[in-house]
Design a protein around this nucleic acid. Structure first.
Lengths: 148, 148
DNA sequence: ACCTACAGTGAGACTACGTATCGGAGGCCA
DNA sequence: TGGCCTCCGATACGTAGTCTCACTGTAGGT
């Protein structure tokens, strides 16, 4: 079963109709490189309205079929996501993105919950750096913390 | 020395002029509650232009005098920040924000760097939950992961 | 195969947030 | 006090996303 059929199955399961426009948006999303903006999708789906593309992206987000990436410069990009909860390691030079799940945020969250008496519901973690290729191309910049 | 004098000192140190408009923006920022939007500042500084408020906020961001908070719903808010690198624990019910620094992201970053051969430059972490007060007010929602 | 309810659609106005431009004003130093 | 140069406000512009509304076409029933 192809990717698109899988996605369509999930949409149907949730009671969403499979229309021509949605199919065109899905095709476009699947044809994108690693990460992309809604505008990229719009440009490659002539004849589908802006609102429809945004609506479809929202559905895909809700179904966890795509996820959002906060880039170093503050812009939000989208990315196909076949798995569930994970985080991103983004190369600030070439934009390459690695997913990772093996991090130990869980223990951090546990400590934090104990220390603050909050009932933790979720978290968002993005890590920025220079990938193995890019770190060779350019001299290391001054150490930087992107996060606040 | 008051907060505003401290901030003004830091601005002067960087060669920024202390103008009437900047003073009004600083006053407004200091008068805000825990977190706020640029629009909140704009509304409480009649007679200062939009662009000037944004420009001033940018300077404050650059000087790490304010930081940005990514709320659960995806909106960005601002917050006074007297310290350097830290993270936020945000109550999804009442919007209360706790800062924390005692987390062990450093070791996570080290492991990640080893595993992926990335040269890690920074990270962004926000944790969402229900604060001690709010967790009593409402029954626990279904467990949720806000992050992707 | 046809009917029909109603989810979905496209166009375009609108909102939110932020940046660029530009002529004019005013802070700061000699 | 003069003058340079940063900063100013107004406003146009850009980008990301939402809302509205009359129309369309999918999917389930017969």
């Amino acid at each position: 079963m192809s990717d698109i059929d899988l996605i369509i199955e999930r949409l149907e399961m949730r009671g969403h109709r499979i229309t021509g426009s949605r199919r065109r948006v899905l095709d476009a999303v699947l044809a994108q490189p690693a990460h992309f903006t809604v505008d990229d999708v719009l440009r490659s789906t002539r004849k589908v309205g802006r609102a429809t593309v945004f609506r479809t992206m929202k559905i895909l987000l809700d179904l966890n079929l795509v996820c959002r990436i906060l880039l170093d410069d503050g812009t939000l990009h989208y990315r196909l996501s076949t798995r569930g909860h994970h985080h991103h390691l983004v190369c600030t030079n070439c934009g390459r993105v690695e997913d990772f799940t093996n991090c130990d945020v869980a223990s951090l969250v546990r400590d934090l919950s104990r220390a603050t008496d909050y009932q933790i519901e979720g978290h968002w973690l993005e890590v920025y750096g220079r990938c193995s290729t890019c770190r060779l191309l350019l001299p290391a910049p001054a150490a930087r913390t992107t996060a606040t």
